[in-house]
Write a protein that binds this DNA or RNA. Sequence first.
DNA 1: ATATTACATTGACGAATGACGATTGAATTG
DNA 2: CAATTCAATCGTCATTCGTCAATGTAATAT
Lengths: 117, 117
Amino acid sequence: MPVDLQMVPKQKRPVGQPCCDPVVYPDTERAEAERMASVAKALGDPIRLQLVDVLRKHAGKVCVCELTPLFDVGQPTVSHHLKVLRQAGIVDSERRGLWAYYYVVPEALEELTAWLN
Amino acid sequence: MPVDLQMVPKQKRPVGQPCCDPVVYPDTERAEAERMASVAKALGDPIRLQLVDVLRKHAGKVCVCELTPLFDVGQPTVSHHLKVLRQAGIVDSERRGLWAYYYVVPEALEELTAWLN
DNA sequence: ATATTACATTGACGAATGACGATTGAATTG
DNA sequence: CAATTCAATCGTCATTCGTCAATGTAATAT
């Protein structure tokens, strides 16, 4: 949870005494910050963000060969970005025959979304 | 805006004909995706996310010397992360005497937040 | 069996990132 | 003045990232 910092503007400070008292940082927030940062990081690329956008709007499932032509990068690169999103827990996939269908994991964005609000 | 993709599962496809018809991607979304991705990218580091968290919760202004001891990195590194956040438009700063006070730019996270909801 | 299609993986590359120590600059204090 | 403090910047380094060409793998079609 939040650290309670002094808001008062600093003024004359005795010499030899550094800026402020050491503030203990509760690491309860630490793990949470790492989870949310990893999700944000995965969204921190225009192609990945648009991939999520398309997959979200078509809540069903879209195969990769439909996603690839949407971007100016090759198929392996799209596959790579999908892997990054999968490893971040944002999407998952299911194979049907030759095709791979990706979809957004519903609860994946909840924590970050809640934090932003 | 969203691309309207066919949701129907693929079946037998004539030989010599690739996966799907070329889909025109409206680049209206492109610039928006780049803006949101750059914000997400800036939030994609635990330290930066916690910096924003602290600055948001203490809506006023916090000097850098109070932020530094919260993390296990040196002062130049905190300064670097603040610069990244500033360049992403997420925070801004104001100097008062020796101290620099950072604060979150209110509308900076709006677009990404809205997209996530 | 052979060819074709969809997708993933590998390895390579230049570019960007996160961290540090050292230094600099500006404002304050003695 | 000189010394001190806060914060930014500069180099440097190791790591990670985004992309590609090439290849691998599995399923399908002829």
